[in-house]
Amino acid sequence: MKSLEELMAIRDKMQDKVAVRHASDDIRVVVGMATCGIAAGARPVLNAFVEGVANEGLAERVTVTQTGCIGICQYEPIVEVYEKDKEKVTYVKMTAEKAKEVIERHLKGGKPITEYTIGKVIS
């Protein structure tokens, strides 16, 4: 059974890292989690980002957060990527699989996946 002792061990291990964690978040991944997003499948997309960012060792510079309805519900699940000094990238009709690709090619590789962005999907 998962015990509180185990949680204490996590605490002790993490306490040293706390200072570093606040130091930088260069990239912010924002997932729309209003009714429209949730109904369209945003929860697995969010989980894929949370898991992927941690497992790929990106947690020091990428934060994953949630937001409400962005106003273009028909394109949910919507994910916005904010990066310092760069234009915001808006991904639409996301899935957990696409999220994994975005982590690999955009967050790690630095190249947004144009075919999943709003400009491409609408036009």
């Binding site: 949680l7 996590i10 993490m14």
Partner: peptide
């Protein structure tokens, strides 16, 4: 109460726990 103030419940290690 176990983790203290400095460690976010949103840390991946905590979420996994």
């Amino acid at each position: 109460a176990v983790l203290g103030e400095d460690i976010s419940l949103a840390s991946y290690e905590v979420l996994e726990w």
